[in-house]
Amino acid sequence: MARLLVVHHTPSPTTQSMLESVLEGAHNDEIEGVEVVVRAALTASSPDLLRADAVVLGTPANIGYMSGALKKFFDETYYPCMADTAGLPYALYVHGNSDTTGAVRAVESIAKGMSWTQHRPPVTVTGELTAADREALWELGAVTALAALGDSVTP
């Protein structure tokens, strides 16, 4: 069975809603053969990452950067997993009150250093979550679950 790893930091109601939308998409009934593993960024580990066939990363934008929790995940997995996860499809969602640019840039830079493949453009939300944002997050979860199967077709 393929495995989608969702690594998130959800300190606010908005980031929690974003995570829930991603998970709804990943658990779409039309997608079979994918186990969705959800880990808080502070508890996600190298073994979790090494067993993943695709990964979704979720973070708030804090002071122009990704959360410290997601940074800790990268600090602990970068060297132990870099060689064995090259080519891993990944997707990203970020929430910020006013800007997400720095957080997106930081995650993309680290993922590039790990030779991961960005499967979809990031879903970024500033301010309140809209219905269109929820739909984009649902799709992000669904298509990244398909990527875990090695399928790039949108459901």
Rank of each mutant, 00 (worst) to 15 (best):
A52I: 10
I110N: 00
T100H: 03
E139M: 12
I31K: 01
L137N: 07
T100N: 13
G127T: 09
L129N: 01
Q118G: 03
I63N: 06
L137C: 06
T101Q: 11
A131L: 14
T101D: 06
N97F: 06
Y90E: 13
T126M: 11
I63C: 05
G113Y: 07
S45P: 05
A83N: 11
G127M: 06
E139D: 09
A131Y: 04
M114R: 03
V38A: 02
L42Y: 11
E24T: 12
V36R: 00
S12G: 07
H27C: 04
G87F: 04
T144I: 07
T77D: 04
L137M: 04
R39P: 03
V6K: 13
K71A: 10
Y93T: 08
T77K: 00
Q118A: 10
K72I: 09
R120M: 11
E24P: 00
V125F: 06
M114W: 02
D84E: 13
A86D: 10
I63H: 14
R134T: 11
M18E: 12
G141D: 15
L129V: 12
F73V: 09
T43F: 07
P13E: 02
M18I: 12
E30G: 13
V22C: 02
A111W: 03
D151V: 15
S21C: 11
V123T: 04
G141T: 11
L137P: 08
E108Q: 15
S17M: 13
P122R: 00
A83M: 10
T85M: 05
N62W: 14
E139S: 13
A52F: 10
A83S: 08
